[in-house]
């Protein structure tokens, strides 16, 4: 049996773009040649440039985005699901096991449904419970795990604060007993105190319910605290991947270094040490050859400009992977 829950192998996701119906079709290279393994029970962090393909990759792993090439395999205890060849029935099964926590707790919850109905909906849609009594029991169980008050179940979402709503969406995502959760910017809109509270909740639930997370976030300080392994994305590629402590203490890729230096701080002194990036952000329709970060890199090596070194990760120390161009060119 594999230690990994998810294997992502050489995955590419492209979108078509057409300016109008007579012009030529172009491709947006949203995700390019991604290889990752997500260990069972881990908190896998995904950070990176806006538009670099984090959401697209997360959705591809959930089977919600078409994969253009490569494959994603979900290693369940008794069988493997290959998302490129998955049948309709299997996809239904898979949806119970892999869930998304939405980014926006306001938009994600229907204002006309009670909290009980919102949490119960996946059970009913996926026909997991047999009758209303069983559904109610399950809803109450998960609600109390997510520290929601049982009397709150009768209420409508508008009566709740953002933090409580986020717990409602977490309860909804967890109610079908999934094994894998993609949390896409799930705490971005919350203030730091509630973020900390929800992250602690996710951490505790991981142990209690045997969960594995893919945690997508812009907030590196949050990622540093909760994730075991972090992958950094830029323009469709993973440019660095390492255990989070290693990544934070010993970043190798120039983009990662810039990211870490730019974390906003309330200390003005730290602020002034931020590496300021200039230069054009390249387009996903027309990515540069070689290192995709070279147009904004503050300290490109001699061989970077030529763009002859193809992108690809190499292991520089156990578990620490860096794009090869950044290693070879220096």
């Amino acid at each position: 049996m594999s230690d990994n829950l998810i294997s992502v192998n050489n995955v590419c996701v492209n979108f078509d773009y057409q300016e109008n119906f007579i012009s030529k079709k172009q491709k947006i290279h949203a995700v390019q040649n991604i290889n990752i393994k997500i260990k069972k029970g881990s908190f896998f962090g995904l950070v990176g440039e806006s538009g670099s393909g984090k959401t697209t990759l997360g959705r591809a792993i959930l089977g919600a985005n078409k994969i253009s090439s490569g494959n994603v395999i979900f290693h369940d205890d008794d069988k493997d699901y290959d998302l490129t060849t998955i049948s309709k029935d299997e996809l239904k099964e898979y949806r119970k096991k892999a869930q998304l926590i939405f980014q926006d707790p306001y938009a994600a919850l229907s204002p006309r449904m009670t909290v009980r109905d919102i949490i119960a909906e996946p059970l009913e849609v996926m026909k997991i419970t047999k009758n209303k009594q069983e559904t109610d029991e399950r809803v109450r169980e998960i609600a109390s795990k997510c520290r929601l008050n049982l009397e709150h179940l009768r209420r409508f979402p508008h009566a709740f604060s953002g933090g409580q709503r986020q717990r409602i969406s977490i309860a909804r995502a967890l109610v079908s007993s999934p094994k894998f959760i993609v949390a896409d910017e799930s705490v971005a809109a919350l203030d730091v105190s509630i973020q900390a509270d929800i992250l602690n909740l996710l951490k505790n639930l991981r142990k209690e319910l045997n969960l594995t997370y893919l945690f997508i976030s812009h907030d590196l300080s949050v990622v540093a605290h909760v994730c075991d392994v972090v992958a950094v994305m830029y323009l469709g590629h993973i440019v660095e991947l390492a255990p989070s402590k290693e990544l934070f203490n010993n970043p190798k890729h120039s983009y990662t270094k810039a990211l870490l230096s730019s974390i906003p701080s309330i200390d003005p002194e730290k602020q002034s040490k931020a590496i300021e990036l200039t230069g054009e952000i390249p387009s996903a329709m027309n990515p540069p050859s070689g290192c995709v970060f070279k147009t904004r890199c503050p300290n490109p090596g001699h061989d970077c400009k030529g763009g002859d070194i193809e992108m690809g990760l190499i292991e520089v120390s156990p578990g620490h992977w860096v794009d090869q161009c950044c290693v070879i060119s220096k």
């Binding site: 990176g48 440039e49 806006s50 971005a188 812009h218 810039a258 990211l259 730019s262 906003p264 990036l277």
Partner: peptide
């Protein structure tokens, strides 16, 4: 700027 990565946020 909540949905931006920190380098673009700074920009």
């Amino acid at each position: 700027t909540t949905a931006l990565d920190v380098t673009i946020q700074a920009q």
